[in-house]
Structure formats: structure tokens, C-alpha cells
Amino acid sequence: MGSEALPCYVACDVSLSMADHIDELNAGLREFRGAVHADAAVADRVLCSVIGFAETPQVVQPLFPMDDLAAMPAPGACAGTNFGPVFTFLRDVIDADVRALEAHRVRVHRPIVFFLSDGQPTDPVTWPSAFAALTDPGWARCPRVVTFGLGDADQHALARIGTFRSYLGRDGVRVGTALIASVMHVLSTSRPPAGRILSGKETPWKRTEGDRP
């Protein structure tokens, strides 16, 4: 890993309804890894974590350089698709990961969360508050969020969640293409902070080209 890093978090729905899409999802992850490794300058900066979620989230792969990328497991029997717990989990994981990188004097780009689902949230009342905490512009580690809808995904909900970009597989976009395009855009248009935050006072991220209000 070089002196700067772009943390990427791929949060994938692994509820029962995703059984028909898991091969497409894993093909997209392989395509993403291949494209990152094809450019040494990109591979040196991109770190990736993979998280599966249904009723609760679980780490499939911690934040590592993309020498390898874990495949998503086959969906379990759980039919629930709770968005709120994974948003809360992501906030905690991002906070810990960025602190660890900064402690090693790595300059950290604003993180990206890729959120992939084929369904509707089964916690419609509670997920918006968890999402608001994750994307609070006053939080110094607030990530950009890119959504990708598979199958008959709830387009309205995903559009609310995609603060940076939002894609639908039924429009002919591939998972890998969406991941690659978003990462390359961020690396080409943004710069990480000039140095570690030493005072404990954190500066909120400024909105850049491509971010939605």
C-alpha cells in the first residue's frame, strides 16, 4: 500500500431473493478486481472490504489491498432485507478503518460505499435515520454512496441512498462496470487530505463533482 488510500466498501444483499443474482454479483467483483490490478497506480491506492447483509450484516472480507477479493457466499434462508443495521455497521467499520490508516500516516480519500440489493427494505421506518448518520456531512469520514439495483430492486429507495451515483442492472449496466467507473472518477477528480489529523478536530468532507445533494 502506498502513501494514500481509497477505502471501498461493497455491501451486498445476501437475502434469499438474491439467489438468482449471486453469480452476476460475483462476476462483477471479479471484473472490478481485474480492472484495478490492470493499473498499478490504481492498485496501489484502492483497498476493498466486502460485507454481506440480510437481517444483519457480516464481514466477508475486511479492508485489504485488492490482491484478492472474496466471493459472496450463497444466500441463506433469511428473507429479511434490513438496510438500517448495515448502515450503522458501515459507519462503525469506516470510522475504525480510517483511524487505523491515519495512524500509519496514510492519506485517506473520502471512502466509497457500494450498496447492492435486489429488494425492498424490510425496515422501512428505521433505516432512514441510520442512513442519515452514515451520510451526515458533518462527519469527517462521511462516504460517497453508489447504489446498484439487481432484478426488481426498489428504484425509489436506491435513488434515495445513492448520494454519488445510482445504477440499475435492468438498464443494461454491469456490476463491475459501475464499480470501476465510480472508483476511477473519484481517483481522477479528488485528492486526499494533505496529512494526518493530529489535533483530533475533524474537518467535514466538501462536496465535489458528482456528489448529489
Score class of each variant (00 low, 15 high):
P213A: 11
T56C: 02
V36L: 14
H109T: 05
R196L: 04
A159S: 14
E4W: 05
R212P: 01
L134E: 08
H104Y: 01
R91S: 08
V60L: 13
G195C: 07
I180A: 01
L6V: 12
V113Q: 02
D39V: 15
D20L: 14
R99K: 13
I22L: 11
L116Q: 00
M1P: 15
K201D: 02
H21V: 05
L150C: 12
V183Q: 00
L90M: 09
M72Q: 06
P192V: 06
A79T: 11
A159Y: 02
G200E: 01
T208P: 00
S129K: 06
Y9L: 10
V146T: 14
T189K: 06
G149L: 09
R45Q: 12
R165T: 03
D44E: 15
P193L: 07
P62D: 05
R207L: 09
N26T: 09
E202M: 13
I161K: 00
A132P: 08
P204H: 04
E31R: 13
P73C: 07
A130N: 12
D123Y: 12
D39P: 04
L116I: 15
S166T: 15
A100Q: 13
P143G: 03
Y9N: 02
P124A: 10
V145H: 00
R105H: 14
H37Y: 03
S199T: 15
G195D: 10
V46H: 09
Y9M: 05
G119S: 11
W139N: 13
I51A: 05
A35H: 13
P213N: 06
W139M: 04
L16E: 11
R99S: 10
L116V: 15
V46I: 11
H156G: 01
Q120M: 10
T81N: 10
A35R: 15
D136Q: 05
A41F: 05
C142N: 11
V50Q: 00
T126Y: 05
A133D: 12
P193M: 07
G195I: 01
R33N: 02
G80C: 05
L47M: 14
R141N: 13
L150K: 04
L158A: 03
V145G: 01
V186A: 04
P193T: 06
N26D: 11
H109P: 10
A178S: 13
S166W: 03
G52K: 13
D20K: 15
C12T: 12
E24P: 02
E209G: 14
G76T: 03
H104K: 15
R33I: 04
H185K: 10
L47W: 01
A43H: 14
H109W: 11
D92L: 09
H156A: 10
V98H: 04
R160T: 06
V46T: 07
P75M: 06
V46L: 06
E4Y: 08
A159T: 13
R174C: 03
T126G: 04
F115S: 08
I22Q: 13
L134I: 13
R196C: 05
P73M: 04
L63S: 00
G162C: 07
A181N: 11
A43P: 08
V173C: 06
V42C: 09
G200C: 10
A132W: 01
I180S: 04
R191K: 12
G162Q: 04
P193G: 06
E102Q: 15
C48K: 07
V42R: 14
S190G: 00
V98K: 03
T88C: 08
F32V: 07
P73V: 09
F115Q: 01
A35N: 13
